[in-house]
């Protein structure tokens, strides 16, 4: 069992609901032991992708396969209960009339391995709440039970749909860390749907960007963060500066200098994308950029600068180089950290 063995493969998958094409031409491999995060604006088809993999939604074109055979094709849809999947959703969907332990036990086969419901509760640090009903648990506790319930049946594939979105910021962070350990330990193919960039960057081995039913970019988190290939992909992972330029002698001429783009950038893109932290400011009397606003946020300072033609850039950097409104500067960029669109 290697880390790259695809547990689930989607080949040219399309989904239509009520005559409307929600997914189109999806090719995607979900390897065992790896976490794949699907990012996309709302309505991009993220949940439908998850539902198709789970077997809740039939595919209208293409095929979903596992090493044991075909899961979905336009002709057959293996029902969800036969797919060895685990699903965790935002509203956790714990069965309200069952205790925590009964919820965890619901999907377990008795023949299955050594893990008991009690052991799973212990793994999510809720051994003492076995007999509590869902409404007696806090939001975070409910989500832990939902995760334990999904993992307890030792699924081949784990699907998380905005699983931590209903938790508050603090709780989300710790929950994410614990979940990542458990998911890695489960050695399943994991697909996470989220709109939270922090969550995507922290959990993902691979990020897939979905827009209008199609995959527009995929790659490692660092790759996608620094070198997004569309405005959509760039915005989904955080703040970005977009500078349009003109194409000349194989480089894109922008207000902060010439940008060399890799060969894979097709069709001579017109816009270069820079994260605020990929830019740096150099104090320069009578420089081309003027500081118009500064924001202090703990370890970082966000500085907004305005160029000669009225264009603005947001730059973040360490607070030891303090800028003041009215200072004139020059802007430099890290050539390895440029995206395009």
């Amino acid at each position: 069992m290697t880390a790259t063995e695809a547990q689930i493969s989607l080949k040219d998958v399309a989904c239509e609901i009520a005559g409307k094409r929600i997914l189109d031409g999806i090719d995607l491999d979900l390897p065992r032991g790896a976490i794949t995060v699907v990012l996309g604006p709302s309505g991009a088809g993220k949940s439908t992708l998850l539902r198709a993999i789970a077997g809740f939604e039939p595919v209208s074109e293409g095929m979903i396969t596992s090493p044991t055979g075909i899961l979905s094709s336009p002709k057959v849809t293996l029902p969800p209960e036969k797919r060895r999947i685990g699903v965790v959703v935002q509203s956790n969907a714990l069965f309200p009339h069952m205790t925590a332990a009964e919820n965890v036990r619901f999907g377990m086969d008795r023949s299955d391995g050594p893990g008991s419901a009690q052991e799973w509760l212990a793994k999510v640090e809720l051994a003492d709440r076995a007999n509590a009903y869902p409404h007696e648990l806090s939001g975070g506790e409910q989500q832990r039970i939902a995760l334990a319930r999904a993992l307890a049946r030792q699924p081949d594939v784990v699907l998380l749909d905005e699983a931590f979105s209903s938790l508050d910021q603090q709780l989300r962070k710790s929950m994410r860390r614990d979940a990542k350990l458990l998911l890695k330990e489960a050695d399943a193919a994991v697909l996470v749907v989220t709109h939270d960039p922090d969550e995507a960057l922290e959990l993902a081995d691979t990020i897939v960007v979905l827009s209008e039913g199609r995959i527009v970019q995929r790659g490692a988190p660092e790759d996608l963060y620094w070198r997004p290939q569309s405005i959509v992909a760039a915005r989904l992972l955080g703040e970005v500066n977009a500078l349009t330029g003109t194409w000349q002698d194989g480089v894109l001429r922008t207000a902060i200098g010439d940008v060399e783009l890799p060969e894979i950038a097709e069709n001579e893109p017109q816009t270069a994308l820079f994260r605020p932290s990929a830019l740096s400011l150099v104090p320069l009397p009578n420089g081309p950029w003027t500081v118009i606003e500064t924001e202090f946020s703990g370890g970082n300072q966000f500085v907004t600068v305005k160029g000669k033609k009225g264009e603005t850039l947001r730059v973040s950097g360490h607070t030891n180089v303090t800028m003041r409104v009215g200072d004139t500067v020059d802007v430099a960029f890290d050539p390895k950290r440029v995206g395009w669109a």
Partner: peptide
């Protein structure tokens, strides 16, 4: 309010319809 989702989740946990 919560019927369909719970039903789907139960199916994903291996329960037949």
């Amino acid at each position: 309010a919560h019927g369909r989702l719970s039903w789907d989740i139960a199916r994903s946990l291996g329960a037949g319809s």
